[in-house]
Amino acid sequence: NQESVVAAVLIPINTALTVGMMTTRVVSPTGAPAEDIPRLISMQVNQVVPMGTTLMPDMVKGYAP
């Protein structure tokens, strides 16, 4: 099972992602793949992402898996 990126903390809208904001988990439906964490760092979210929420590609500005 592939791990997806999950918010480790509450991420406010327009916040640039840091490694400490993200964790990985096997979830369904799958979100952004765990191996993309290095690409996701410094990208901004376009909505509030509550802690424990799977990071879906459409939540991150300019990100395409």
Rank of each mutant, 00 (worst) to 15 (best):
Q47H: 04
P12R: 09
R25T: 07
V49D: 02
R25E: 08
P38Y: 11
M22F: 04
M43S: 02
G20K: 15
R25P: 07
G31V: 02
M43K: 14
N46I: 10
P12I: 09
S4I: 07
I13K: 15
Q44G: 01
M56T: 08
T24I: 10
G31A: 04
M56C: 07
G52H: 07
S4L: 07
I37W: 04
N1R: 11
V5P: 00
A64C: 15
T15V: 09
N46M: 09
V45M: 03
A34P: 10
G20H: 14
A32W: 13
Y63I: 03
Y63D: 00
I37R: 01
N1I: 13
S42N: 14
A64K: 15
Q44E: 14
G31Y: 01
P12S: 09
R25Y: 07
L17I: 05
E3V: 11
P65I: 12
K61I: 15
M51N: 05
T18A: 10
M22N: 06
M22T: 07
V48T: 15
A32K: 02
P38C: 12
A34E: 02
D36A: 05
M59S: 04
M43E: 02
P29D: 00
E35G: 13
G20R: 14
P29I: 05
V49I: 14
P57R: 07
L17R: 00
G31I: 00
I13H: 05
V5H: 04
S42W: 09
G31K: 01
T18Y: 08
S28M: 12
Q44F: 12
I37V: 08
P29L: 06
M56I: 05
T23S: 11
Y63P: 00
I37G: 03
T15D: 00
E3G: 11
L17T: 03
V26K: 13
M56G: 00
K61G: 06
V5G: 02
T54K: 00
P50V: 09
E3A: 14
M43F: 06
V5S: 03
P57D: 01
S42R: 09
Q47L: 08
A64L: 14
I11A: 00
I41D: 03
D58A: 13
L40T: 03
Q47E: 05
V19R: 15
L10T: 14
Q47V: 11
K61D: 13
V19W: 15
L40C: 06
A32N: 02
P50Q: 11
A8P: 00
T15N: 00
T53R: 11
V19P: 11
M59C: 05
P33L: 09
E3W: 13
P12K: 10
P12F: 09
K61S: 11
T24G: 08
V27Y: 05
S28L: 11
T18W: 09
Q44M: 13
D36C: 10
T24R: 15
A8Y: 08
A8F: 09
S42I: 08
P12E: 10
P50K: 10
I37H: 01
P33M: 04
P33I: 06
L55S: 00
M59R: 00
T54V: 07
V19M: 15
A8Q: 05
P57G: 04
V9G: 01
G31P: 02
A34L: 04
R25C: 09
L55I: 14
V48A: 13
D36H: 05
T53G: 08
V6C: 08
L55V: 05
L17N: 06
V9E: 10
P50I: 09
V5Q: 03
I11G: 00
M21P: 06
V6M: 01
Q2V: 14
N14G: 12
R39M: 11
M56F: 08
G52Q: 04
Y63E: 00
G62E: 06
I37S: 01
R25Q: 09
E35N: 12
A34W: 06
P65R: 09
Y63K: 04
Y63R: 02
D36W: 08
M21H: 08
T23K: 08
A32H: 01
N14Q: 02
M43A: 00
A34C: 09
V19A: 15
S42Q: 08
V5W: 07
Q2M: 12
T15Y: 07
Q2K: 12
V45E: 05
N1E: 14
V19S: 12
V26C: 13
T30Y: 15
V6P: 03
E35C: 14
M59L: 08
D36G: 04
M51I: 09
S4K: 01
A8N: 06
T53Y: 13
K61C: 12
Q47K: 02
P65V: 13
L40F: 02
S42M: 10
T18I: 08
Y63C: 03
T15I: 07
T53Q: 11
G20V: 11
R39D: 04
N46Q: 06
M56P: 02
M56K: 01
V6A: 03
P12A: 09
P65F: 09
G20E: 14
V5N: 01
V6G: 00
V60M: 01
A7T: 05
P29F: 07
P50G: 06
N1Y: 12
A34S: 07
T30L: 15
N46W: 09
M43Y: 02
P50H: 11
S4F: 07
I11M: 00
S42G: 15
A64I: 15
I13Y: 12
V9D: 00
T24C: 09
V48E: 15
V5A: 03
L10W: 12
L10G: 05
M43N: 01
N46L: 10
V26I: 14
V9S: 04
Q2D: 11
S4C: 08
A64M: 14
V27P: 04
I13A: 14
M43Q: 05
V27D: 06
A7M: 07
Q2S: 12
V9P: 04
N14D: 12
N14R: 04
T24Y: 08
T15H: 01
L55H: 02
A64F: 14
A64R: 15
I37Q: 03
S42Y: 08
E35R: 15
I13R: 13
T54C: 06
V49R: 04
A34N: 04
L17V: 05
Q47S: 03
N1F: 12
V26L: 14
Q44D: 00
T30S: 14
M22L: 14
G62H: 07
V19D: 08
M51F: 06
G20M: 14
I13L: 11
A34R: 05
T23E: 09
N46P: 02
N1M: 13
P33Y: 06
M51L: 10
L55M: 05
P50D: 08
P38W: 14
A34K: 10
G20T: 14
V6F: 04
V19Q: 13
P65L: 11
G52R: 04
E3Q: 13
G62I: 04
Q2T: 12
I11S: 02
D36L: 04
P29R: 06
T23I: 12
P57M: 06
I37T: 04
N46H: 06
P33R: 07
Y63V: 03
A32L: 15
L55F: 05
L17H: 02
T53V: 11
P33C: 07
R39I: 12
M56D: 01
T18L: 09
E35A: 14
Y63F: 05
T18P: 00
I11C: 06
K61A: 11
P12Y: 09
T53D: 10
A34I: 06
V48Q: 13
D58P: 03
P50A: 10
R39V: 11
I13T: 11
V5R: 01
Q44I: 15
R39L: 11
S4Y: 07
Q44C: 13
L40R: 02
T15S: 10
D58L: 07
T24F: 09
V60Y: 05
S42F: 09
L40A: 01
R39E: 04
A16F: 15
Q47M: 09
P38Q: 10
V6I: 13
P33A: 05
G62C: 10
V27N: 04
G31N: 05
P65M: 11
I11N: 03
I13D: 10
G20A: 15
R39A: 07
P50Y: 10
V45Q: 02
V26D: 06
R25V: 08
P38A: 10
D58F: 15
Q44S: 10
V60R: 01
T15M: 09
V60H: 00
V27M: 01
P57K: 05
M56H: 07
R39H: 10
M59D: 00
K61Q: 11
L10Q: 07
E3R: 13
E35W: 15
A64Y: 14
L40E: 00
T53I: 08
V6H: 01
I41G: 01
P12V: 09
D36Q: 02
P57E: 01
P38T: 09
P65W: 08
A7V: 08
M43W: 06
M21N: 07
V60N: 04
M22G: 07
N14Y: 12
V19G: 09
S4G: 05
A7R: 02
P57I: 08
S42A: 11
L40H: 03
G20N: 13
E35T: 13
G62Q: 06
S28V: 13
G52T: 05
V6S: 02
Q47N: 00
V27A: 04
M22R: 06
Q44R: 15
P57F: 08
P65H: 10
V27C: 08
D58H: 15
S28E: 11
L40Q: 02
N1K: 12
V26T: 09
D36Y: 03
